[in-house]
């Protein structure tokens, strides 16, 4: 093999190496030294110039110059590529904030209602609605509130006409449902209710309730207890205890109020601002549907029994989220609202 072939061969190898060379500072520098360094391949061949026959010296010179130019250009181009690559890497700031969408939110009262409805949906309760402007009949009489009875004092009422009121509870939905549907009846009735009470940190003239009703053969107080245990443990947590104590509502008998153990102090009550030291938080009223209420809707109380329960959504939401002023829930600040989402 003469020197011409050697150079051509070397050029070939150079091309091969070049095509596989990574854009990396050290690799490029090694590559440059290998070809263009003082002891590099180009120098090596130039040093052999003397050995070339005179008649081909010109030809060899041309060949070597073009080889050198090729290598120099390749190395320059490599260095430029390297430079660009390094530049790019320097400016990639992975910490720059991403562009986010504007997030909406679901009102804490909607969320609370939905969460409660979903628990009862799982055990076959459907949802029923009723009007906000109600008749005295549905709001009181059919629910066994006699006229001129102290029981009416427990519900400060807004009147539209003598016999038309803003409903004081969602219980009228019970009656409306019993009128149009025969047992078994298994409903939840959510909705907005009204009480004529001055607005302060714990009272608002508009508020919300959810009422549950189950009427069938052989419905017992014992089953009511099981249902409410299920609800409380699912909604407030497994560790929460509850207690039933006798109370009075005109439309149920026996009637009970249900307290849950305070989740702030764990029920021991000491110095607790939430339960005011009692260890218990009142969350709902319940009872067995009064036979008078069943009869008023043409359901035979000898054949059917039932239970009902009702709770204030504002109270539950305030307890659950630690909101200490009911007014925060109405006409709210967006920074307050932002914190609630439907999960």
């Amino acid at each position: 093999m003469d020197i011409f072939d050697e150079v051509k061969d070397s050029k070939q190898k150079f091309q091969e190496e070049l095509s596989e060379l990574p854009i990396d500072e050290k690799a490029i520098e090694d590559f440059r030294i290998k070809y263009l360094g003082k002891k590099g391949i180009i120098k090596h061949y130039f040093n052999q110039f003397g050995k070339v026959p005179n008649d081909r010296k010109k030809e060899f010179g041309k060949l070597m110059n073009s080889f050198k130019q090729e290598v120099t250009q390749a190395v320059e181009s490599l260095e430029q590529k390297l430079n660009e690559k390094q530049k790019k890497q320097e400016f990639f700031d992975y910490t720059l904030p991403g562009t986010r969408p504007v997030e909406g939110s679901i009102h804490p009262l909607s969320k609370t209602m939905d969460d409660i409805l979903n628990i009862f949906k799982d055990i076959g309760f459907s949802t029923e609605l009723g009007p906000e402007v109600e008749t005295d009949y549905y709001n009181f009489q059919a629910l066994n509130f006699p006229e001129n009875h102290p029981a009416r004092d427990t519900q400060d009422t807004f009147f539209v006409e003598d016999d038309v009121v803003l409903r004081t509870h969602t219980s009228p939905i019970q009656v409306r449902t019993m009128e149009k549907q025969k047992p078994p009846i298994r409903i939840l009735a959510p909705g907005r209710t009204f009480r004529n009470e001055a607005i302060d940190a714990s009272h608002y003239c508009t508020f919300h309730q959810i009422e549950g009703l189950y009427i069938d053969k052989d419905v017992t107080f014992s089953e009511l207890k099981t249902t409410l245990y299920l609800f409380v443990k699912k909604y407030f947590g497994e560790e929460i205890d509850l207690r039933f104590r006798p109370s009075f509502f005109p439309f149920t008998e026996p009637s009970a109020e249900v307290d849950i153990s305070c989740f702030k102090c764990g029920g021991n009550g000491e110095q607790c601002s939430l339960c005011k030291g009692s260890g218990w938080l009142e969350i709902l009223g319940c009872g067995m549907v009064d036979p008078n209420v069943l009869s008023a809707s043409d359901i035979d109380p000898e054949k059917y029994t039932g239970y009902a329960f009702g709770m204030g959504i504002e109270r539950i939401a305030m307890l659950k989220y630690g909101i200490d002023d009911i007014r925060l829930l109405y006409g709210s600040d967006k920074r307050f609202l932002k914190q609630f989402k439907q999960l």
Binding site: G104, H107, S110, Y330, G331, L337, Q342
Partner: peptide, 20 residues
Amino acid sequence: QKVRNKLAAYGYQEVFNNSL
């Protein structure tokens, strides 16, 4: 519920105001 969730997905925040 569906309408409410859709509006929230559009970035709207739900508010409650007095009925009176």
